[in-house]
Each structure stands twice: as structure tokens, then as C-alpha cells.
Amino acid sequence: MSVSASPLERVTVTMPAELVAGIDRVERNRSRFIAEAVRHELKRRQRQELLRSLEEPHPDSLITAELGLENWSQGLPAGDLNLLDPSAGVPLQWSGEQGWQEPDA
């Protein structure tokens, strides 16, 4: 992924000298290294937030889960009905103790 693919913005970052020296030992372009590290951390935090949201879903999504996707989709406006194909996914049910689980066969 190229940093120059989007508009660039200059920022000033203050960090310990030994951290800067460590960057300089492994990378000639500090900006590229820091941008890559920040991208990596942002992705890590997004994954962490997704996992947290799966463990503790928003109350509105619990209502949807209780209804079931098919029943929920029936409440959509007529033009939006083709957005969902309940038969295309894997059936899941929410358990407060175990999170999202496939129903027992």
C-alpha cells in the first residue's frame, strides 16, 4: 500500500531518542516506517473492537438476533428485500454465555 495514494499531511510527533534510533537502524524512511506502524496498529485496534462487539453486541443487534434474519428482513421496505438472502449464510443464535453459536442440529 502506497502512502502517496492519498493526500499527505505533515504531523509533528515527539518520541524518545532511543525509539528514533531504533527506527533509523531498520528503515531509512522514518515517515514510511511510522505510517506503516500506525496502519498496523489501527488494523489491530479495529480487529480488537470487532471482537469486543461480537462478545458484547449492541442491544439493537440482540433484537435482530432474537427475531432472526429472515423475520427481520420481512420488516424492510419492499425495495430493500433483495439485499438479503437468508439461505446464503450459516444459521447462528446468540447465547449470553457463549456468544454467537451454530444451533444444535
Rank of each mutant, 00 (worst) to 15 (best):
N71E: 07
R10S: 14
D24C: 04
T12K: 12
V90K: 03
E9C: 07
R39W: 03
V38K: 00
D60G: 03
P91L: 00
A21Q: 10
N71W: 02
R44S: 08
V26D: 07
Q74I: 00
K43A: 12
L92R: 13
E55R: 00
E66C: 11
A37T: 08
S87Y: 04
S61F: 15
G99K: 06
W94H: 02
S53T: 00
S87V: 09
R25H: 04
Q98Y: 09
R25Y: 06
L84P: 01
L92N: 10
L19E: 05
A21D: 06
L81D: 02
V38P: 11
V90W: 02
P91I: 01
S87A: 14
P7H: 03
W100M: 00
V38Y: 08
G68L: 07
E9G: 02
L69Q: 13
I34G: 10
A37R: 12
T14N: 11
P59D: 14
E66N: 09
V20I: 15
P86L: 00
A17T: 12
L42H: 02
V13S: 08
V90Q: 12
D104Q: 14
T14E: 02
R45P: 00
Q98F: 13
G89R: 07
L62H: 01
D104N: 03
W72A: 15
E36W: 06
A37S: 13
P91T: 09
V3N: 10
E36L: 02
E49Y: 07
A65E: 04
L8G: 13
R39N: 11
V13I: 13
R10D: 06
R45F: 01
P16D: 11
W94K: 05
L67F: 12
I63L: 10
R44E: 13
D80C: 14
G89E: 09
L67W: 09
T14H: 12
R39F: 13
M15F: 04
R39C: 07
E18A: 11
E55N: 01
S4D: 15
Q46L: 14
A5F: 07
L8C: 05
A88G: 04
A78T: 11
L69C: 07
A105D: 14
V20T: 06
L81K: 15
L50V: 08
L92C: 08
S6I: 06
L81T: 03
D104T: 07
L8D: 04
L19R: 15
L19A: 13
P91G: 03
E56P: 00
D80S: 11
F33M: 06
